[in-house]
Design a protein around this nucleic acid. Sequence first.
DNA 1: GTTAATCCCTGTAGTGACTACAGAGTCAAG
DNA 2: CTTGACTCTGTAGTCACTACAGGGATTAAC
Lengths: 141, 141
Amino acid sequence: MREFTIGQLSKLTEVNIETIRYYEKVGMIPNPPRTSGGFRIYSAPHLERLSFIRRSKELGFSQPEVRKLLTLVDEHKYTCAEVQEIAANQLDAVRTKIKDLRKLEKALAGMLSECAGGDIPDCPIVDILSTVPEAYRKMLG
Amino acid sequence: MREFTIGQLSKLTEVNIETIRYYEKVGMIPNPPRTSGGFRIYSAPHLERLSFIRRSKELGFSQPEVRKLLTLVDEHKYTCAEVQEIAANQLDAVRTKIKDLRKLEKALAGMLSECAGGDIPDCPIVDILSTVPEAYRKMLG
DNA sequence: GTTAATCCCTGTAGTGACTACAGAGTCAAG
DNA sequence: CTTGACTCTGTAGTCACTACAGGGATTAAC
């Protein structure tokens, strides 16, 4: 069992068939050999590469970043520092996103705490959303 | 100063001109009257509505959710509970995202802590990413 | 009164990272 | 040899905008 069809590879890696073909088209995985009928034939290196891509995506790396990582690995002459930088940038980005989401969380929780629910045709949340910022009101005379 | 061109509205609300036209096209803001030459003329209600949309987006509501909120407000017969539900869903979604990002943060930080940097042509991060999961290895014989 | 600068118009196409077909061909089992 | 599941290519759709291209409107200055 050293060779796979695209469907088998898809099940193994939990990457969509269409996505595998897409990765091939955009050059992230190499063109595999084919059967006489044109079916793609995959083997261990493809599995490893696709698995690498999947793990990177799971860690939130964007496609350009994944490409950079792949290129570094492909060239077999990357340094630890190069990889470290990409990962450190990603960590920064993740931490920034967490901060932003925390702010959202606070704002939403604050609004919800003022909201009594029920059948009343009125809601503090709508009031907040409807409020026109001070700066605009000047414009309205 | 009770009427605005699209450019003035854009500056006031900090919403892109193209985005304002897009919102009009998809029915989130009403078609404004026009000058004889075809220029859009906006006034207070448009400013308020666009401001509502912008605030909702800032709170992370998706377009369908913003639409729901707008519909509720438009119909002027929403109940507090309806609005509360949308906001509560959004809060849940935000909290889930934060949790996911925390996991990412931990994984990345862990990888980075094992990484010494420097000019060595080798990196624990690449090793981790290159690891083929146990389940796959069976397939490789 | 005309010209230049700045605005605005419509419509189409592009973004990221896939996903979803349509219509045709291939393969493996019975 | 047929059936049914799989695969092929290529195009178009997704979300929520953004970026033009190629024109017309408006306004301020001269």
